[in-house]
Design a protein around this nucleic acid. Structure first.
Lengths: 128, 128
DNA sequence: CGGTATCCAAAAGGATACTG
DNA sequence: CAGTATCCTTTTGGATACCG
């Protein structure tokens, strides 16, 4: 880890402290990790397969951020080969449930959104 | 607008349709716009000042995306100088309320998150 | 297995100048 | 005022190689 991370965080904190947590929670991979862990604890590779299309780097980064914020618990067992389980903390569980609600809402309203888009695109391609 | 936008959307849609809407709603500026409009309708420049630190480009882009998704209503009055009011649609109101709940939750839990971070950083800088 | 380090491509985002 | 167009910088994210 180099200094740029700390600087970035300091910058974002300066703008508005809670915005940073909100961004972690609503980030592309943060959302998927939290929702997945609502199901049960997962191992690193297991989580990676469950989510799909996520690189090791991004999953590692996402998990570390969420762990640091106290939303995810990391349990590294001292065995060979290594085994690491990730689970939600009580705090993380609260966050995950809200994220899931939002995701479910989005799914429910998807039809309306699609129709709105079609109408928008039609309007734009027309003369008006 | 060139083709890359449509391609990006097609790609994201391919992954998971509702994820795209979720990303619009939880995007950096999307969150702030929705929460602000929960208060009352805003004009473009007014909104820009209220949010602060957002470039014209990003605000325009965010508003267009949210309008296309049917979450924000754009009312352009044919006057000189131009006057454009932005407000939430019923659908956008639903989204905004959930986003606000999430933001409020984050604010409430900020203390716990900060303590978790300190503990994490202490643990990392120590021998363990 | 569960990472870290490095490099590179792509996307997001800001500053500026210009337009109706 | 409310944008659009362009250029440029910063950030994000993936691929690869390597380590304990």
């Amino acid at each position: 880890m180099d200094v740029s991370e700390a600087q970035k965080d300091a910058y974002a904190e300066g703008r508005c402290p809670y915005r940073l947590v909100l961004e972690h929670v609503t980030s592309r991979w943060g959302v998927l990790v939290l929702i997945q862990l609502l199901d049960r604890p997962y191992r690193f590779s297991e989580l990676r397969r469950a989510i799909g299309r996520v690189s090791e780097k991004m999953l590692t980064q996402t998990l570390q951020t969420l762990e640091r914020d106290g939303l995810v618990h990391r349990d590294a067992k001292p065995v060979i080969p290594p085994r690491v389980d990730y689970s939600l903390t009580p705090l993380g569980h609260e966050a995950a449930e809200q994220i899931r609600e939002l995701a479910l809402w989005t799914e429910r309203r998807m039809g309306q959104v699609s129709r709105a888009r079609e109408e928008y695109d039609t309007r734009k391609s027309a003369t008006g």
